[in-house]
Structures are given as structure tokens and as C-alpha cells.
């Protein structure tokens, strides 16, 4: 199994918290990932969270619900949530949940996000 995402995987730069996720973002893994994302969403220094899904193997409804919670935490302070590298299936799940209007979803061309060291 892939290494789970942890706070160390994320980086904060000029108000943007960028984090790449790995493996399944699903019922078994969401409780841990959620802590990281909600933690970041709470920080005043964080204006935007960018999540890179390009190495995510699976997204289920619990993952989508976690994104809603993250988005809410940010939106309260005028922040934004940006998702990139989503698979077709993940995008369709988000559409099925009618949440594609809420998250900013970047397509492949716009998905190049640099992760500072």
C-alpha cells in the first residue's frame, strides 16, 4: 500500500497550502486525511488549499464529504479549495454529488502545481 498522506507531505507557501494525496481517499483512509485538511483549513495563514489527486487510486463519497468540510472551513474566511489531477471517475463522482460548482477543479492542462521543498 502507498504511504498515507501526512501533514509533512503538505507545504505552505504564500498562503497556499499544497498537498498531494496518494492511494485511496476512501472510508478507511479519510479519518486521517481529514485531520490534515481540516487542520490546514483552520490556520489563519492558509488562504487556499490545493490538493493534487494525480496519484490517488480511488475517491469515494466519504472523500467527497471530507472535501466539503475542508471547503467550508476555508470558505468561512474567504479561502478557496482547488483540486487538480482528478481522474475521470473522481470528477464524475463530484458531479454526481452536484459539488462541481463548489470546488475549483482544474483540468489536466491547468493542473501543474509546483510543490516547494
Amino acid at each position: 500500500m502507498m504511504v498515507q498522506s501526512s501533514p509533512e507531505n503538505g507545504s505552505l507557501r504564500e498562503g497556499i497550502f499544497s498537498i498531494p494525496l496518494h492511494g485511496p481517499v476512501a472510508m478507511t483512509t479519510v479519518p486521517e486525511i481529514r485531520k490534515v485538511l481540516l487542520g490546514a483549513a483552520k490556520k489563519r495563514a492558509v488562504k487556499e488549499i490545493r490538493i493534487d489527486f494525480s496519484r490517488v487510486s480511488k475517491l469515494d463519497t466519504s472523500g467527497v464529504a471530507m472535501l466539503v468540510e475542508t471547503w467550508r472551513g476555508l470558505a468561512r474566511r474567504g479561502g478557496a479549495l482547488r483540486l487538480s489531477g482528478l481522474s475521470e471517475n473522481a470528477k464524475r463522482l463530484i458531479q454526481l454529488a452536484r459539488l462541481d460548482q463548489i470546488f475549483e477543479i482544474r483540468d489536466e492542462a491547468g493542473s501543474r502545481i509546483e510543490y516547494g521543498s
Binding site: 472510508m27 478507511t28 479519510v30 479519518p31 481529514r34 463519497t61 466519504s62 467527497v64 464529504a65 471530507m66 466539503v68 468540510e69
Partner: peptide, 12 residues
């Protein structure tokens, strides 16, 4: 069956 938080479950 899961360890998900009540709020995550509510949204799901």
C-alpha cells in the same frame, strides 16, 4: 462499519 466522524457521515 467505519471510523468516520459524525459530520462526514452527515454530509455523506
Amino acid at each position: 462499519h467505519t471510523r468516520l466522524s459524525d459530520e462526514t457521515i452527515r454530509i455523506m
